[in-house]
Simulated assay, not measured.
Amino acid sequence: MKQYLMAAGLGLTLLSPQLASAQDFVQSGSSDMLPQQDGQSLFNAVCSGCHMADGRGAEGAGHYPPLANSEFVESPEAVATWIINGYRAMPPLGGIMDDAQVAEVVNYVRHNLGNDYEGQMTAEDVAALRE
């Protein structure tokens, strides 16, 4: 019964209109880099699994902090550094995202999910953080 309820819950979650579409999760077999280019698609493919599609975060097997309505994401450099290098249980993603992709995710998180911070991060800004 418990397995049935878990499967049903997962099914309902996957059908939720707030969640990413299946095409957001496709990764090319010919490259180590993610194929998605825009911030929302990258967020859906990589970040939403832990931070949830609406950015509310989650508790369970671990603590996944919210990105929605978050003061932390006010700093584009902090967000980009965590994406590139990882932090605690968050794996480093700098090896599967180029500078432009990291900038897109940073900008998506800072201007969506209930956040509305000023400024845009550029690929050049991310490249400087990698040095």
Rank of each mutant, 00 (worst) to 15 (best):
M1W: 11
M1P: 15
K2H: 09
Y4A: 15
Y4C: 13
L5P: 04
M6Y: 02
M6L: 05
A7Q: 02
G11A: 14
G11I: 10
L12S: 07
L12D: 03
L12A: 12
T13E: 06
S16C: 05
P17N: 01
Q18C: 04
Q18L: 09
V26E: 07
Q27L: 11
Q27N: 12
Q27K: 12
Q27E: 06
Q27W: 14
S28L: 08
D32W: 04
P35V: 11
Q36S: 05
Q36I: 07
Q37V: 10
D38T: 05
D38Y: 09
Q40V: 04
Q40M: 05
S41A: 10
L42T: 13
L42I: 15
N44V: 14
N44Q: 12
N44W: 09
A45H: 13
A45N: 14
C47N: 12
S48H: 09
H51P: 10
G55F: 11
R56M: 07
G57C: 13
G57N: 11
A58K: 01
A58E: 01
E59M: 03
E59G: 03
G60H: 00
A61R: 01
G62W: 04
H63W: 09
P65G: 05
P66D: 00
S70K: 07
E71F: 13
E71H: 13
F72W: 08
V73C: 01
V73G: 02
E74K: 11
S75N: 14
S75R: 08
P76R: 15
A78N: 03
V79C: 00
A80L: 08
T81N: 02
W82P: 00
W82T: 14
I84D: 06
R88H: 14
A89C: 06
P91H: 10
G95C: 05
I96Y: 07
M97T: 10
D99A: 02
A100V: 09
Q101T: 06
A103D: 06
E104Y: 05
V105M: 01
V106M: 00
V106W: 03
Y108Q: 03
V109F: 00
V109G: 00
R110W: 07
H111I: 05
H111G: 04
N112R: 04
N112S: 11
N112H: 15
G114F: 03
N115S: 00
N115M: 00
N115A: 02
D116N: 03
Y117T: 04
Y117S: 02
E118S: 13
Q120E: 07
T122H: 15
T122C: 14
T122G: 15
A123Q: 06
E124N: 09
E124M: 03
V126Q: 07
V126N: 12
A128D: 07
A128L: 05
R130L: 12
E131F: 12
